[in-house]
Amino acid sequence: MALSIEDIKKVAHLARIEVSESDAAATLTKLTGILGLIEQMQAVDTTGIEPMSHSQDLSQRLRDDIVTKTNLRDEFQKNAPALGNGSTEPAVAGGLYLVPKVIE
């Protein structure tokens, strides 16, 4: 499965990482090398083998439905990034996190 520049751009878009034309070419070379490594898997016959997600065959533990969290909004929002586009103010207002307008 040879990788193309278009694949790189598509994947970069899905991952929300800006990639310039020159970056895309360099990335293509490196990712092609890594995929070459990965391709070794295709030689293995895995028919009927149960995929392994966890190393231990355990089941999910359940938590009691009791409120244990308190309001730490102000503490958490001290880490808010700077708004950007000329403003160094934190990207919060009235307790809300601020982002560029969301269009539906």
Binding site: R16, P81, G84
Partner: peptide, 25 residues
């Protein structure tokens, strides 16, 4: 790590998509 609640946010961006792409890049 999307530059919304904490972590790096790009200094300049045009819209939401641009903010994501640049902040993460």
């Amino acid at each position: 790590y999307d530059g919304v609640r904490y972590g790096h946010r790009a200094a300049e961006y045009t819209d939401l998509m641009d903010m994501y792409n640049k902040s993460r890049a």
